[in-house]
Design a protein around this nucleic acid. Structure first.
Lengths: 203, 203
DNA sequence: CCGGCATGTTAGCGAGCGCTAACGTCCCAT
DNA sequence: ATGGGACGTTAGCGCTCGCTAACATGCCGG
């Protein structure tokens, strides 16, 4: 296979990270050994140390880059939206697409934050906090009756809803995306109401 | 059928399981050693083998009993409800209460199914499948426009929403329960509609 | 009083872990 | 042609893991 020397440097690291994401998602960080990771990309064992300083560094790089992508995408979508409800719709659609296209990454980020080193965890938590902030502002703008703790709790709940995707594959991708968007938006728009009754409006 | 034939063992096993649930939830199954588990209940290390045959058996018993409690509770609530929408409300309330009262167990069940031994995993999966069935029937009864795969996907999504509780503790218990019930029901009742716009039913 | 059971202890085993050392090979730039 | 860097190999280290062995102690019914 011919390699282009200058522009296309990256492939091996990302190939390793993709394989690692799948294995970490399936067995947990501590349930996967260096040899497992190596043989998943066709090399064996310690060869990985030509590309990463440690197993911890693989997880760190993986979760940091996910968090950066989510934050950047969320901010971009929020900035491009016109109305508060449009903002919410954009954020939901963005997160749904990401979760459907990267189920392993979503799973690893949900389950293995606690296996990061302290500096890595601090950085990832900071990025996640800023991503949640984007959502909290959007929720409060679209549903002014929700105070901030309530909006924050709602954001986490919707993440749980959307991130459940990797564990249920009963629909094809587009139908699943439509269902998740619909459920997420319904749940979010009801956060503003106080009690049992509905406050439904048209789209 | 897995009951010990002798007299009931009251406290120690359950004390160990409770401590193990918290540790497994925080660090993952492979991230907790038996010395950690022992010292969490005041004894140290191998003393646990007076109560459990192995570390795997602790996880197995933990997840089996959760699944049994959820299934029994779900069936009882569904049997006692009058209308389809009432059934859904009962199921949602039941699951919300369970998740809020047992955050560690919920987390372990979500994350560590893959660490079970094969027979344990088969049993737990079977119980979970029956619990999901209860939900699928309730969803289809309450929202007849939803076909079965759609109802199944919706059930998993709502589990994700409710089970996100352990990761966000911004509200007191009752406010959190009310919010989760409201969001879950809104999401579920919209599953019946077909596309982007309407088909909303009255309360 | 005592024998047995329940429950705990410490010492240590074999296996597996993450990782390093030492070494080989291919590929290009000079 | 050749020397060096990128990339791979195998052997093996130090450590921790789950678990067993061997032994101690307190309670309890005959």
């Amino acid at each position: 296979m011919a390699q282009v020397p200058t522009s296309e440097k990256p492939s091996r690291r990302e190939q390793i990270l993709a394989a690692a994401a799948e294995l970490f998602a399936r067995h947990g960080f501590h349930g996967v050994g260096i040899d497992d990771l190596g043989s998943a990309v066709g090399v064996s064992g310690p060869a990985l140390y030509r590309h990463f300083r440690s197993k911890d560094a693989m997880l760190g790089e993986m979760l940091t880059s996910i968090s950066e992508v989510l934050l950047a995408g969320g901010e971009a979508r929020a900035a491009g939206a016109r109305t508060p409800r449009d903002t919410l719709g954009e954020l939901v659609a963005f997160h749904v697409d990401f979760a459907l296209d990267n189920p392993s990454l979503i799973t690893v980020q949900e389950r293995n934050l606690g296996n990061l080193t302290d500096p890595d965890r601090r950085r990832v938590r900071g990025l996640q906090r800023r991503y949640v902030e984007v959502w909290v502002r959007a929720i409060q703008d679209a549903a002014p009756a929700a105070d901030e703790p309530r909006a924050r709790a709602a954001a986490h709940a919707v993440f749980g809803l959307i991130n459940s995707t990797p564990h249920s594959r009963h629909l094809d991708r587009d139908a699943m995306a439509a269902l998740l968007r619909q459920m997420a938006l319904s749940a979010l728009l009801d956060v503003g109401s106080t009690g049992a009754a509905d406050l439904n409006a048209a789209v």
